[in-house]
Design a protein around this nucleic acid. Structure first.
Lengths: 360, 360
DNA sequence: ATGAAAGCGCTAACAA
DNA sequence: TTGTTAGCGCTTTCAT
């Protein structure tokens, strides 16, 4: 293992000087010496021993990331957002998944503290963070939530109001006045927020709210199917249906098609999430992207700020999504139903098929 | 912060003795002393400083996990498999994503070594591990690959031959003799393996291989669509089509339906991967699950064995998947297309990937 | 069975 | 501007 001592010897300086350069200290070192040290260090392949540094400084450049559900389709994007900020800043992430069943959050937090993590990011944790607050020992933390909401500071959430308004206004602008809404599961905080935004958008446009046009339920495709059937059987059925997520919207599309009607020609349908099904569906679904990557980034940025500047906890942060116009609302966009890109909110291709060269 | 010094003082012994007890050393300590030390440590709320321990022992109880593509739909399942083994054994995972473009693997490995990780797991890394071999400095590592294949030991891969045989035999057992195959991208190692298994399964069943029935291409839905169109236009079209993945199969289904035929009544279709589209498609797609979770587990188990027992590198490990019978092949199972257990949005864990109970 | 002490690699206070 | 050195908390040899 190459140590600071090896570098010092090779560069003909003392270890203190090497340390000053390699630890980005603001202690003055002459440019010549600095340059030589950096060169030698790179040549030798020096990499600092974090344990030693950590022991000395009581900081680790490691962030603890705690998730309840790694396998959600959303978590990876959030984590990528986090790392996109953390890694360039020299932070690595200890990622720990906590099963929903086990109330093991306390143990995990303790464990991570034992590893001297500098801060915490909680992603979609069902467990209340505040329960472990006293354990955090003044370490900064941030919470990234998609569907839940804690009455806590340091939370990053999607801007449900803005996002829902985006999609509802899109339909209004297309001339729809009878716009139905299939709400998500009632016990989710975001369901309420999205529904409220739907009402608000209609009211703002001078459209009266018709209770008949509001279906409630869960987040599932079958529920979307049923709800759409209900809506279709009304005396005055809607001309457009908004699902609180893409699954509900997809279910609605299937129901409409099974009823012998066409989407979007007879009824327009819109979703929310920019989930995979929105791209697979035929017609493809106009929806709003959840800014998962950006949410991760925002949380990471604020955490770093808290780490470096002793900045105060930030208030709740809301991140805006984008309207993704596809086929299901009939807006000009006509695209081959199958043309897809899998990038969701990530800046990189998820599956760069072309690059792969197999081994013999 | 409580250190062993505090414990030693409170217990009236030397720090060496405390260390022997608290680090689970097998060095002999009298039962009375041991008991007293444990009691005092617990009372004081002692928790070891990992940095100090790590500095001294050059071990960290941390595993470095390196991925090329965190956002793949597959990676999270693999990681869950890893952690399912590592966490109960007291290991945490430093998870690092390496962008495809940057050839930054060396730097990352160096960095992780700086963090004194005890071992490495490479997940789907495109970069050749062997290139960083000299950097690993004798640290054990394992590679989990889905589509690639390195001529390296310590690789965990799906059992492509077994899995493909599973699906082809299923069709043969259903009475099909003209079974077409839409292969994956030619430059992927697994494409070749799957295709070879298809040929082998047919030959074994005494069915002659018809080159006309083999389409090659990429992994995409549009390609599946085109390939199926080609197959349908043959003088003697197939009675069944196997896609090298579920996207190809889905494309084939769309093409068949657009041609006015029915799946599975007129032509059976089977996929591979147990991807999301296999559940969303109408009809749902009979496929083979990739044993991602199990692959992660296997890699983790072997890594731990190498860590604890100085076990030799293991040879290539192949993990079997399972046949998931849905609607697209017409096997007895046919149910309502929309009824599915689709828990993505629910607060229940999505994993394990398939409980292998198909749509209700 | 227990204790004394060296030293892991690094940073920072103090010296020059 | 550079060098010397103490010591972070721990494990482990060596001595008792």
């Amino acid at each position: 293992m190459i140590t600071i001592r090896d570098v010092a010897e090779a560069a003909g300086v003392s270890i203190a000087t090497v340390s000053r350069v390699l630890s980005n200290s603001d202690y003055p070192v002459s440019d010549k010496t600095r340059e030589r040290i950096l060169e030698v260090a790179a040549h030798l392949g020096y990499s600092p021993n974090r344990a030693a540094r950590s022991l000395r400084t009581e900081r680790s450049s490691v962030i603890g990331v705690i998730l309840d559900n790694f396998n959600s389709l959303w978590a990876p994007f959030i984590i990528r957002g986090l790392q996109n900020i953390h890694q360039p800043n020299g932070y690595l992430c200890l990622v720990v998944n906590i099963p929903w069943e086990h109330h093991s959050q306390t143990k995990v937090v303790q464990d991570l503290i034992g590893h001297s993590v500098d801060g915490f990011i909680f992603v979609e944790t069902w467990h209340r963070v505040s329960e472990s607050m006293d354990m955090l020992r003044g370490r900064p933390y941030a919470i990234v939530h998609r569907l839940f909401h804690e009455t806590d500071v340091n939370s990053v959430l999607p801007d449900e109001h803005y996002n829902t308004t985006l999609i509802v206004n899109h339909l209004i602008q297309l001339g729809h006045r009878r716009i139905a809404y299939i709400s998500g599961a009632a016990n989710f905080f975001s369901s309420g927020e999205r529904l409220a935004a739907y009402r608000h958008a209609l009211t703002t446009a001078g459209i009266e709210i018709d209770a008949e046009l509001i279906e409630t339920g869960d987040w599932s495709i079958p529920r979307g199917y049923q709800a759409a059937q209900n809506l279709l059987s009304l005396k005055h059925p809607p001309t457009a249906i908004v699902g609180a997520n893409d699954h509900l919207a997809y279910g609605a599309i299937l129901a409409i098609q099974d009823a012998g009607l066409r989407v979007p020609d007879d009824i327009a349908v819109a979703g929310y999430d920019n989930d995979e099904v929105a791209q697979l569906s035929n017609p493809t679904i106009t929806t709003v992207s959840l800014p998962l990557f950006e949410m991760g980034q925002a949380a990471a940025e604020h955490l770093l700020r808290m780490l470096s500047e002793e900045a105060p906890p930030f208030e709740e942060l809301r991140i805006k999504g984008e309207l993704i116009i596809r086929q299901s609302c009939g807006a000009p966009q006509g695209q081959y139903a199958l043309a897809r890109n899998y990038t969701r909110n990530s800046p990189e291709p998820v599956f760069p098929q072309g690059i792969h060269k197999a081994d013999e």
